[in-house]
Simulated assay, not measured.
Amino acid sequence: MRVTAITCVKNEGPFLLEWIAFNRLIGVTDFLIYSNDCDDGTDTLLDALGAYGVVHLPNPAKGRNYQMEALKDAARQEVVRAADWVWVADVDEFLNIHVADHTIPALIAACGDPQAISLSFQFFANGGVERFEDRPVIGQFGRTHNPDLWCAESAIEVKTLVRKDFPLHYFGAHRPFFRDKLERGQRPRWTDGAGRAVPHKFLVAANPRRIRKFPAAGARDHATLNHYALRSLDSYLVKNDRGDVNREGRVFDDAYWKERNDGGWEDLSIRRHLPALEALLAEMKAGPLGDLHRTCVERHRARLDALLSQPSYAAMRDHLRALPPLPPGEAEMMAELGIEA
């Protein structure tokens, strides 16, 4: 089975090898990676990863919506057209498969071989980790929110595996879309991460507020999408400075941090992959890739030092460190009830 992962990156060098190695372990065979405006060595590292199935292209975007323009281009690329399945995800997202041998083929089989599988996000908290460390992200962060609730939301965003015969109109960052006029009998068979048919309004994108998400309760039996959106406080500051590969000028403020820093639950299940992941990373870093990776790490740390020399970033660091590890609204509710945080 040929599975192609598509992603867009900007200054993700320190985290690339882990993400590529992890995805290869779960069954991804090829990668189409678009980069834009990198100055940490990400683009150079990507150019050296051909032996691991990576096709690296500059982002073709001429407007501001980098990711959507890249996805439009991706649909024409041979590495995507030749794939049996396509997986659109970001470098901080890891597909945690719970069934059989924990691979994508096992997930597809468990879901009944549909034409699309949408997996619900699980946001992993910072967990009080301040310093960036050059070791697997999946081994550093294990605290997360109630799987069925995120802040005040029971409907949680998804990312989607897409089979080659899906009646594709275009790829979205979270889900594919088919044409509005598609007859009912031609609509794709589409499941959640428990093998259940996705809700009708999600299927046909009938509700603008729900085209990227549906209720997470019961949707994770076979797989979860672990999203390490914060990582360490150090790396979050660099991410804030970098901006967003999706939209120019987007700022990650403290609301983004607070919404994703709910550590009320623990989930360490993805660490089943750590021994094999660390072995593959050691193999990858043994040659020239290791030097390129270390360059990215050094530049990541140097950028952090430069940011912390600015009063605004030093203040941001202190502000984020002082925030209670509670989702928005919970601290206020506890204060109202006279409960100490």
Score class of each variant (00 low, 15 high):
residue 168 L to S: 09
residue 134 D to M: 10
residue 121 F to D: 01
residue 145 H to D: 00
residue 131 R to Q: 12
residue 156 I to R: 02
residue 138 I to Q: 00
residue 70 A to T: 05
residue 144 T to K: 01
residue 69 E to Y: 07
residue 140 Q to H: 04
residue 64 R to P: 09
residue 147 P to N: 11
residue 49 L to S: 08
residue 160 T to I: 08
residue 105 P to R: 05
residue 67 Q to G: 03
residue 102 H to D: 06
residue 75 A to S: 14
residue 85 W to T: 03
residue 162 V to I: 15
residue 104 I to F: 07
residue 100 A to Y: 08
residue 163 R to G: 07
residue 68 M to V: 12
residue 61 A to E: 11
residue 156 I to H: 03
residue 139 G to H: 01
residue 96 N to P: 10
residue 89 A to R: 04
residue 125 A to M: 01
residue 100 A to W: 04
residue 77 Q to R: 15
residue 149 L to E: 11
residue 148 D to I: 06
residue 78 E to R: 15
residue 139 G to K: 00
residue 58 P to S: 14
residue 99 V to G: 05
residue 74 A to E: 01
residue 66 Y to L: 13
residue 134 D to A: 15
residue 125 A to R: 02
residue 71 L to I: 06
residue 49 L to G: 08
residue 120 S to R: 03
residue 153 E to L: 13
residue 138 I to F: 02
residue 63 G to V: 08
residue 88 V to L: 07
residue 79 V to D: 06
residue 54 V to K: 06
residue 67 Q to P: 07
residue 55 V to C: 11
residue 147 P to L: 09
residue 110 A to M: 07
residue 141 F to R: 00
residue 142 G to D: 10
residue 161 L to H: 04
residue 132 F to G: 01
residue 124 F to V: 06
residue 146 N to C: 10
residue 67 Q to N: 10
residue 150 W to P: 03
residue 53 G to P: 04
residue 65 N to T: 13
residue 86 V to S: 04
residue 84 D to E: 15
residue 84 D to M: 07
residue 136 P to M: 06
residue 70 A to S: 14
residue 157 E to L: 09
residue 102 H to F: 09
